[in-house]
Design a protein around this nucleic acid. Structure first.
Lengths: 178, 178
DNA sequence: CTTACTGTACCGTCTGGACGGTCTTGTCAA
DNA sequence: TTGACAAGACCGTCCAGACGGTACAGTAAG
């Protein structure tokens, strides 16, 4: 891992996520991202030689961040807490953030559906891992899918649930997870 | 409701859904839809004077179809089956279709996120209705969210679950629903 | 004569990307 | 210490192509 000498790269990625969230996934143009990041278009293209590379970086950063958070929560987990429980807690916290943290995904899909493949692979891997660690398959299925539903609602910004309901849901899931 | 004299409208809508699914949501251009529907671009714009109207029709048709299916399943439901149970069954069947039936949604979002508002409203309405009909709030939350998760996986075409697992999930949910 | 198109030509706009130039920073010989 | 110089980071402009949408003449059916 080379030492970063500038933070332009990160600024650009953050700007891209912001633009996607605020002006809609279809309006994620290089110009918009560049101006939002306080960088010229040339500078943007210097960091990410093509739009596809920008999207790819967005995906990779997102996945890496989640993976690190999951690992951290696992090792820091209170003794006796099941992996499924930590997964539920972490995902619920993540989904409780007011900003739909990943609405840039829509931009990526619109650009090229293949950007989903790493995400799919990651999910499958996480799921398989949980499957190996959870004795009760039924509980795993219900909890995993419910969390996926929570993620989906956050992504589509359709918060049907009240805060109380969300809390009740999470506690129910933790109960099911045992 | 005027009697339809032509089926061009439906052909076009189906073609739009196909194009969105096959060539990616970002490639949903009027030209592509027209040629896929076997209709000239002029003819397409004759039926849907603007792209936004086409998207709107896509959304409305989808919502109407689901609502009708839900009503039908409710009235035809076996006596004693709870509304939540019918909702689970119908949605599970719907999500079991091989084609992601609504990947055009991504196109709509990319075009203008406001196309989501009718969908959000519809979901909220369905949820509120279920809430009034289901005594056990915890069960409702878990089941509704899990179904939402199933829908999401189908939409993103990431089938982490095997057929057996999906069956087990649905039966578990029905058990929870009581 | 109307409806429901077809087919073609065209326009204005937007977008990704290429390109050449510019400013800054680090290196190293004298 | 200083000056030369190269590499890195970025700017601003320009362009070809794609897309949504318009206009309009023609046509086949009822």
């Amino acid at each position: 891992m080379k030492a970063r000498r500038t933070n332009s790269r990160d600024k650009i990625l953050a700007a891209a996520a912001d633009v996607a969230r605020e002006t809609g996934p279809g309006s994620l143009s290089l110009d918009a991202v560049a101006s939002r990041a306080g960088v010229s278009k040339g500078g943007l293209l210097y960091n990410f030689p093509t739009k596809a590379k920008l999207m790819q970086a967005l995906v990779e950063d997102y996945l890496r961040a989640f993976e690190q958070a999951l690992d951290a929560a696992r090792t820091a987990g209170v003794g006796g807490e099941s992996p499924l429980a930590t997964y539920i807690k972490l995902s619920a916290e993540h989904a409780a953030e007011s900003k739909p943290s990943a609405s840039w995904i829509f931009s990526a899909i619109a650009e090229d559906p293949d950007f989903l493949t790493p995400i799919k692979a990651f999910r499958r891997q996480v799921f398989e891992r949980l499957k190996g660690e959870t004795p009760d398959l039924k509980a795993l299925l219900v909890c995993y899918l419910a969390i996926e539903g929570l993620r989906s609602m956050n992504l589509f910004d359709s918060d049907v649930l009240s805060q109380d309901e969300r809390r009740l849901l999470v506690s129910s899931l933790l109960e099911i997870a045992g």
